[in-house]
Each structure stands twice: as structure tokens, then as C-alpha cells.
Design a protein around this nucleic acid. Structure first.
Lengths: 106, 106
DNA sequence: TATATACGCAACCAATCGGTTTCGCAAGTA
DNA sequence: TACTTGCGAAACCGATTGGTTGCGTATATA
């Protein structure tokens, strides 16, 4: 089953949930109140987020607080690192390379 | 139609294509040779990437070179910014907040 | 103890996804 | 002019997705 962080953040509702619980842990019902959706739909999103360890459930009586595992977000940051290198310093060299290749093929 | 950058990078093959053409622009056939897939499948991925402007086609004779629009990657970086703030400086304050809320509910 | 609340889980559904096959077109090449 | 090559587009297919509905269960409350 494809259950990684990139697939998790692909859905806009899921991204909104992440932003919401980044501030403070929340229950499925509390989260659902913030969107135009049902508790069950939110629960499904939380399941996806939990499965890829982006979120952690914390039982408290009959309520379950879902907390964002902020460290997991670093995985995206880490993947972006390779591109950051390009856009921060090598963008002109890259353009030169592309021009060179273009001329070679002509 | 859901066609944003987050959906674009959700697919592992698409992420691999992005990494590949970050180094230099490539044709669909050349890209397909790097993976265990067909030219048509790659073409479909390139279509998704083009539609969300992560990639730009450059016709050259009968070949089409697909070039990564590196600037578009900054959108992900920008979205991450809000979380970077948390994991870089506010993580202990956040934990304190959560503890406080927990105690209030007990 | 009866009732209400908070939740996960399973079944179901329409829409979308990733992939294949087939086609047609344009650009090179013999 | 024929033939080959590189490509996009469309039709099709099984798998997955996001959502709903209807349970069952555990916790809190009257």
C-alpha cells in the first residue's frame, strides 16, 4: 500500500488538518467543525496521517487527541534539499549546460 | 480537476522524473529508459507535471525536451515554512501548551 | 441503570489514477 | 516518395481514493 508522507499531503483537506493540529492537538469532532465535512471523513484522513506517522493519537477518556509529529515534516524538507541547492546557487550553470546540450544536438 | 504541485509529487515515479530532469532536460523516451516503464506512461506523468507548471516542454525537431521549472518547487518550500518555524524554535513552547490543555481537561 | 457522546471499523459508491494498447500526425531518413 | 522515429491523444481497464451510511463499543452522564 502506498502510504508515504508525499501521498499524505497530496490531499488539500489533509493539508488543512495538518496546519490546524500543528497549533494544538485536536479530536476528530473538533477538526470536522473547522471544515465543511463529516467526522467520519476526517477520521479517514486521520487514519492515513497516522499510518504514515505524521500524526499521533492520544487517548484521553472517550476522546482521542491527534497530535502532529512535526519531525516527520522534515522528510519533505530533506527531499527538497536537492532542489534548494539548484535554485539557490546553480541555476545559471544549469542554464549553460542546457544551452550546450542544445547546440550539440543541432 | 485537482492539479496542484502537491498532487504532482505524490507519485513516486513522478518524483523520480523530477529528480532526473532537474539535472538536464530530457525527452519522454530518454526518461522512460531510466525506469521500468513505457514511454506512454512517462508521457502521462509529464502531462500532469506540465499542467501544474512544474515542467515545461521544449520542442526541438521531432523531439520534445521536458525541462524542470525549478522555481515551482519553491511553492512546497513556502508551504513548509510555517512548520519550519515550529520545529526550529517553538517546539518546547508547543509541548508546554499541550501539557497545559491536557491538565485543564482533567 | 438508561441515555448520550466520541469514536473506529466495515461496507458501499462514484470518481480518479496509473498503466496499456492503439491510433494518427509530424519530422527526419533511405 | 516510402519508411522509420518521436510523440500526444483517446479508449479502455483494474486498483485506489475520498466520501457516506450504518453499525458496534467504550466512556461519560442523568
Amino acid at each position: 500500500m502506498r502510504r508515504d508522507i508525499f501521498q499524505a499531503i497530496a490531499d488539500p483537506t489533509r493539508r488543512a488538518i495538518i496546519v490546524l493540529i500543528a497549533v494544538q492537538a485536536m479530536t476528530p469532532n473538533a477538526i470536522a467543525e473547522h471544515f465543511d465535512t463529516t467526522r467520519q471523513a476526517v477520521s479517514k484522513h486521520l487514519k492515513v496521517l497516522t499510518e504514515c506517522e505524521l500524526v499521533q493519537p492520544q487517548q484521553q477518556g472517550r476522546e482521542i487527541y491527534y497530535k502532529l509529529q512535526i519531525d516527520k515534516m522534515k522528510e519533505i524538507d530533506h527531499w527538497l534539499e536537492q532542489f534548494r541547492k539548484i535554485w539557490e546557487s546553480r541555476f545559471d550553470q544549469l542554464d549553460n549546460l542546457l544551452e550546450t546540450l542544445k547546440k550539440q544536438q543541432q
